[in-house]
Nucleic acid binder design. Structure first.
Length: 380
DNA sequence: CGCATTTGACCTTC
DNA sequence: GAAGGTCAAATGCG
């Protein structure tokens, strides 16, 4: 469970604007999801009803997303690091929270999935990273501590290349870009711990090499869009000998794929989303009340509440590709944070294209076989 | 069939 | 020549 700031300066002054309708839409979508969840036992074997319910939900989020995109499009500046999922924490206007039905608040708190937890984890890393001064390779090292769930603390160091090499490996004999940046990334606590947490971009592995005096091989990745958009970004991933739960990730080259107007990293329109969704055969697992819960929206609601702060990011177990067609909307503007966060949540819910995961698995993870849809009495 | 991963061979640098 | 980095054919998966 992540601990978020309990108080937040009221820098997101709430006025009755388009934000309201966006938040209303998001909340409405959540409410519809709640309704669907509670009705599943009764309509789970009625495809037509299910379809209609899903359509309603999709339409609602798609509309919200479209409006958000309209806002974000004008504001977004796209640095190459950190990745697309690296957004600051979400802030909901207080008024919105106060209008939420208490039972719905409870549902929001409890309707977290493991995948969402992973998503949040990566966002946590991302937030931390984005707040760091990432020094380049020629400089010294910097490090920081991450807030962890349940009070535990994870460390993620952003260090210079030379610093890493001096402690973890022999001096490099070979070419190394001056722009290389090395990040120490803790392995995900959930999902496939063999792979480093998702950083929001989609990577294609093009090589693996045993490294002298290293227990673990080094993996070489390049941007999935290298060919299509001549994106030169690359990264190397290697587990530390003395700490297998930590990955040393060295980034080389800047992402240029998000600069392209045709690049898939640009958020798609709501209509496209709707089309995508409607053309997919989606099977869902009936939500289990015992699913790892409670963190995808870690919020404080109620009297004097300071708002919902939600971390949305993206590690998808190996899915690694959390991060579907990675959305690259990013914005330094504080005023844009709300839109970005909501857009990000919508992305996590609806975007597909991550090299390693179906984004719907964020929402309904684990074995999503048709059988799970069968009412209890129809199962063998 | 298209895309991603694996892996041995090859290239580059020291 | 050794070691890191990349290529590309083979393979697997959805």
């Amino acid at each position: 469970m992540f601990i978020f700031n309990k108080t937040q300066p009221n820098k997101h002054k709430h006025t009755v604007t388009m934000e309201d309708s966006v938040y209303s839409l998001i909340l409405k979508g959540c409410k519809l999801s709640q309704d669907l969840q509670s009705n599943l036992p009764t309509i789970g074997n009625q495809p037509n009803l299910l379809l209609r319910a899903c359509d309603d939900i999709i339409r609602t989020f798609a509309t919200a997303r479209e409006r958000i995109n309209g806002q974000v499009g004008a504001q977004a500046q796209l640095p190459s690091l950190p990745g697309p999922f690296f957004y600051p924490p979400m802030m909901f206007p207080e008024q919105q929270l106060q209008n939420i039905d208490p039972s719905f608040q409870e549902w929001l708190k409890s309707s977290v999935t493991q995948a969402m937890e992973d998503v949040i984890q990566t966002q946590l890393l991302a937030d931390q990273r984005s707040s760091l001064t990432i020094r380049d390779h020629a400089e010294g090292s910097s490090s920081t501590r991450l807030r962890g769930s349940g009070g535990d603390v994870q460390a993620m160091d952003v260090v210079s290349d030379s610093a890493v090499r001096s402690t973890t490996s022999p001096p490099l004999r070979h070419r190394r870009s001056e722009n290389a940046r090395t990040v120490m990334v803790p392995a995900p606590r959930f999902g496939n711990v063999e792979i480093p947490p998702e950083d929001g971009y989609t990577w294609r592995k093009y090589g693996q090499k045993e490294i002298l005096n290293s227990k673990y091989p080094r993996s070489y990745y390049r941007c999935t869009h290298q060919k299509l958009y001549q994106c030169p970004a690359k990264k190397q991933v290697q587990r530390l000998d003395n700490d297998p739960s930590t990955f040393e990730v060295t980034y080389n080259g800047e992402h240029t794929c998000h600069m392209s107007s045709t690049a898939p990293s640009i958020p798609v329109s709501a209509s496209e989303i709707t089309q995508e969704m409607s053309s997919q055969t989606i099977t869902m697992q009936q939500p289990s009340p015992t699913t790892s819960l409670g963190t995808w929206l870690s919020m404080e609601v109620g009297a004097g509440g300071s708002g919902i702060r939600s971390m949305v990011g993206g590690y998808s177990g190996g899915s690694g590709d959390a991060g579907a067609g990675p959305s690259t909307i990013r914005c330094d503007s504080k005023d844009g944070d709300q839109y970005l966060q909501v857009a990000n949540m919508a992305d996590a819910m609806f975007n597909s294209g991550s090299s390693s995961s179906n984004s719907m698995e964020f929402i309904f993870p684990a074995s999503m076989d048709q059988e799970k849809w069968q009412p209890e009495d129809k199962k063998d």
